[in-house]
């Protein structure tokens, strides 16, 4: 009798219930899928800092081209943009003005890039600075014969 019970016990199939593990795994999977921050389409705007002595005044001494000065000043609720001494409504207007300037300077014999100097107030949001740099890169990518070199006038 005892030996019969023993053989029945050894023959009993041992199974593991996988359901809770699969449930947990799926929950974790869903959690990670939901919380994953997909890498946004990120790009670069290349710029160079001035190599001249005295980084406070960036205008390149070795470049004889007349520079274009873009000033960004913080105004209540908006931003004040000036190209040279002219006030601009937005960056589209800056683009038109600078493009015209670049086109006119194509005839000049010098092959050096035109300094595109940004003078930015401390309180100006970084997004506006990027918009200003973007204008220069847009003009450069159009290959109209002259290039702009983005530079900063850094003042303490």
């Amino acid at each position: 009798m005892a030996s019969k019970i023993a053989t029945e016990m050894t023959e009993e199939e041992i199974t593991m219930d996988m359901t809770p593990m699969i449930d947990c795994t799926f929950l974790l999977l869903i959690f990670f899928m939901c919380t994953l921050n997909f890498k946004s389409m990120e790009g670069l705007l290349i710029s160079n800092l001035p190599k001249e002595e005295g980084i406070f005044n960036v205008a390149s001494k070795s470049n004889p081209m007349e520079p274009i000065h873009i000033a960004l000043k913080n105004a209540p609720g908006s931003i004040q943009i000036t190209v040279g001494s002219d006030s601009m409504r937005d960056f589209d207007e800056v683009y038109s003005r600078v493009r015209l300037f670049v086109q006119q300077s194509v005839t000049l014999a010098e092959n050096k890039p035109i300094p595109y100097i940004l003078i930015v107030d401390d309180q100006v949001a970084f997004a506006h600075v990027i918009s200003a740099i973007n204008v220069a890169h847009k003009i450069n990518n159009e290959n109209i014969g002259k290039e702009l070199s983005v530079e900063f006038k850094l003042t303490n």
Partner: peptide
């Protein structure tokens, strides 16, 4: 990040 249409992909 600020947006820029002329940014180049890495």
């Amino acid at each position: 990040l600020p947006k820029a249409d002329q940014a180049k992909e890495e």
